Simulated assay, not measured.
Amino acid sequence: MAPDPPDDPYVLHARLLAADEAAFREVYEAYVPLVLGVATRVIRDRTAAEDVAQEVLSHLWERPLSYDPARGPLRAWLLVLAHHRAVDWVRREEKRRGLAAPHEAPRGDETADAATDGLVALRVRAVAAGLPDTLREPLLLAYYGGRTYRQVAAELGIPEGTAKTRLRTALRVMAAALAAEGITP
């Protein structure tokens, strides 16, 4: 795996926000092999994968605010974005060729899928960790502790309706945060 660029992630992000070409070059050199590798494994066409990799890195250059170093490492964000863009490319191609059945997801390389699943899980945990305590506690009890909303309410000493509301709110906040990073169900 390529190392992170030498700067602190916040310093690097500030440099990208300032349109520092040297910072972008550091990111490009550090991550283009990984981004291209994920895109190639999903698309299985080197030329198309190169286009997707260029699209991903151009996205960072043109919209550096879309990456937030507080939410996780740049590497993870770029790889998740590469995977999503590559899957979108495959879907567009299948639709263009008339091969895809409605709602059929393309089958990617199992290694790429496993890597992406791990990165998505990392992002989900990071987003959950960033929730306020009032939302995070019920969410962790329900989804990681296997409790019902009634059990969550009893354990936290809150009304059942409040437990339901907090769970729904936590899920909505997480879905919005993940969607902003291109991670959708």
Rank of each mutant, 00 (worst) to 15 (best):
L135T: 08
R172D: 14
A179N: 08
Y143K: 04
A154C: 01
P185V: 07
G108Y: 04
A114N: 04
R166C: 07
V127P: 01
V173M: 03
L122E: 15
R166E: 12
R166S: 09
T116E: 15
V127C: 06
A129C: 04
E181S: 01
G161R: 12
T148V: 04
L119K: 07
G130S: 11
V124Y: 02
V173N: 02
D109Y: 03
G146I: 03
Y144D: 12
A175D: 15
A126P: 00
L141D: 12
E110W: 08
V127T: 09
A115G: 09
L119P: 12
L140K: 01
R147K: 14
A128M: 03
G146Y: 04
A126T: 05
V120W: 01
L167E: 10
P102C: 07
G145L: 07
V120Y: 00
T148R: 05
K164G: 12
H103M: 10
A121N: 07
L135C: 09
V152H: 04
E110I: 06
A142G: 03
R125P: 05
D113T: 06
G157H: 10
A128Y: 02
P159H: 13
L135A: 10
V173L: 05
Y149D: 15
A115D: 13
A177M: 04
P138M: 08
R123Y: 08
T134I: 03
V120I: 14
A153P: 06
R147G: 01
A170R: 01
I158S: 07
P138C: 11
A176K: 10
Q151C: 00
A121S: 14
E137T: 14
P185M: 03
A175Y: 05
R168W: 05
T111L: 07
A163N: 12
G146N: 06
L140S: 05
E181T: 02
T169H: 07
G108F: 02
A121G: 13
H103A: 12
A176D: 15
A129G: 13
L119T: 11
T111M: 03
P185A: 13
A112S: 13
A142Y: 01
V173E: 14
L140V: 13
D113Q: 03
G130P: 03
P106L: 04
L119E: 08
L178G: 11
A176F: 00
A176S: 11
R107I: 10
V152Y: 06
A112F: 06
R172C: 02
Y149Q: 14
A153Q: 04
E155P: 00
A177Q: 09
L171E: 14
T111S: 08
E155T: 11
H103D: 15
G157C: 10
A114Y: 06
A129S: 13
E110Q: 08
L178D: 12
T169L: 13
V124H: 04
A170S: 11
L119V: 12
E137D: 14
G157M: 09
T111D: 11
I158W: 07
M174Y: 05
E155F: 00
A180E: 15
A154V: 13
A114V: 05
G118R: 09
H103I: 00
T184V: 15
G108Q: 11
I158T: 10
P138Y: 10
P185E: 09
T134Y: 06
